[in-house]
Amino acid sequence: MRKLRMKKLMSLLLALTMVLAFAACGTEETNKSPDEGSDLSYVKGNGKLIIGYTNYEPMNYTDENGVFTGFDTELATLTCEKLGLKPEFVEINWKTKEVELNAKSIDCIWNGLTIDDERKAAMEITKPYIKNAQVVLIKEGTTYNGTESLIGKTVVAEQGSAGENTINADDNLKQASFVPKTLQTDCLMELKSGTADAAVLDLTLAKSMTGEGTNYEDIIIVDYLAEEDYGVAFRKGSDICAEVNKIFDEFVSDGTIAALAEKYGLEQAE
């Protein structure tokens, strides 16, 4: 009889122990540190910030000496120093940039990204740091009298870019034969070879890659269609964005962004 009572008591104690263990697990789950859902804590845990970019001079590119550099490259590196993180640059397909960001293949898109309402709804974007515009480029000697000159002509722009959005927003350019390209530099190659009549590209790239002393000396800017600003994009709700904004404020105050903008022939955002 005593043995039976002992067995019952042991069973009761075991059951009670399991209940308490489950309760503790539930409490632990409920009382998780807020930092565990923090994007900043996530990247700090990895010790690095994975930066998505495309080959886009003067923002991120490899110079004639084989050195990876550019305005965004330098600014991102300086920002990572402030964050205590190692920058890791990963070349991406611009068309799938948001997919890669949300899949955590990259932690941000830092590559002359135009700020617009659609992107702000889908991603966390910093305050503007550089001014830009969408411009029309043609081969020297080609007649151009506004975008109406391009009705029925072949026009190229980077797929998924502000250039493509500008074409879709222009009544005349919508009547052109639009051919999307993977990179803005591909658009310049199409112009040079004569397989495209015009391109709509970022002013920042167009200024640095065309004209005297470049591989595209015969490509000229003939029109300005849309003024815009660049920002850095993080995952929606990411707390890294606010930290980067604070660092940008410091870099504006101490002249860091202004000096880099001058170095790369860019205009700082207001």
Rank of each mutant, 00 (worst) to 15 (best):
N31L: 13
A269S: 15
S208E: 02
C80I: 09
V43L: 10
Y224R: 11
S177E: 11
I151W: 00
E267K: 11
N46I: 03
K86V: 15
I247G: 08
G141K: 06
L101G: 05
M123K: 04
E158T: 06
V136H: 04
E36D: 13
T17P: 01
E212V: 12
L75K: 03
V232S: 02
C25T: 09
S208K: 12
L83H: 06
G52Y: 02
L203M: 14
V67S: 12
I247Y: 09
I219A: 07
I125N: 01
K174E: 09
E88D: 15
C108G: 07
S11F: 14
G112T: 04
T96L: 07
I257R: 00
I220E: 11
Y56E: 12
G211L: 04
S208F: 03
A196N: 04
D197R: 04
K181N: 08
N215Y: 10
K48E: 14
L150S: 00
K246C: 06
E81T: 11
V136N: 01
V232T: 13
E158F: 02
I257Q: 01
T54F: 07
E57T: 12
F248R: 02
T204Y: 00
L4N: 09
K174Y: 01
T185L: 07
S161G: 02
E88F: 07
V90G: 01
G52W: 08
L9E: 15
K120T: 12
S177T: 08
T17W: 13
T77C: 02
E140Q: 13
N215A: 15
P34T: 03
D171A: 10
S38I: 05
L225N: 01
K236H: 08
D63N: 12
M59P: 03
N31F: 14
D107A: 10
K32D: 08
W94G: 07
A261M: 10
K174A: 09
T185E: 08
E57W: 00
A21M: 14
G163L: 03
I125Q: 04
D229L: 13
S149R: 08
A162P: 01
E262K: 14
Y53G: 03
G70T: 02
L203P: 06
G213Q: 08
S38E: 07
E74A: 10
K8Y: 12
T17C: 15
